[in-house]
Amino acid sequence: METTLTETTLFERLGGKLGISKLVEDTVDAHMKNPAINARFLPFLKEPDRLAKIKQHTIDFFSAGSGGPVTYSGKDMVTAHTGMNISPAEYMHVIDDIFIALDKQSFNDDTKKDVLAILWSLKSMIISK
């Protein structure tokens, strides 16, 4: 008997657009509470429309990049982060916050490794721009 492995996309493992939306909400909440980076995020509380737009772009970007049937229409990563001068330490704090959100939702290690691979691939497009 032949066994057929059905590979699920990272998008599916993260719970689709709904799961990724929850992951983004939890991550932004962690950023707001993280003293190492919250100065970059707290001002958005006074601009709820802008924060909502950033969250939606993040959801769409990660949905498309994780194999979902979503089209990302926002800025590329270099353009989106140019002028922010994000340090390597800040980027690591962002990754830590994403993992806090992943752990909160009890994702397995393989899923977390795949998310980390994506985050690591974006590093040079975001740091010190």
Rank of each mutant, 00 (worst) to 15 (best):
A39Q: 14
E90K: 10
G67S: 05
L42T: 15
T58M: 07
G83P: 08
K53P: 01
D49N: 13
K55G: 02
F44T: 05
I86W: 07
K75A: 15
F99R: 07
D76W: 05
S87M: 11
A101P: 11
N85E: 11
I100K: 15
M92D: 14
S87H: 01
S63F: 00
I37L: 11
T79N: 08
F99C: 06
F61D: 00
I59G: 00
I95W: 05
F62V: 02
H57L: 04
V94F: 12
P69C: 00
G68Y: 00
K46D: 15
I59D: 01
F62N: 00
H93S: 15
N38P: 03
V78L: 12
G74T: 04
P88H: 05
Q56H: 11
I54C: 02
F41V: 12
F62T: 00
V70L: 02
V70S: 03
T79S: 14
A80M: 09
V94T: 06
I100T: 15
P69D: 15
R50P: 00
I86D: 00
T58R: 01
I37M: 07
L45M: 14
E47L: 13
F61G: 00
V94G: 12
P69Y: 02
I37A: 06
H93V: 10
A52T: 12
G67W: 06
N34G: 11
F41W: 09
A101L: 02
Y72F: 07
P43T: 10
D60P: 03
M92G: 09
T71L: 10
G67F: 07
I95A: 11
Q56V: 07
D49K: 15
F62Y: 05
E90N: 04
I54A: 13
D60E: 15
L102D: 02
P35I: 07
D49Q: 13
T58D: 05
V94K: 09
A36K: 11
A80F: 04
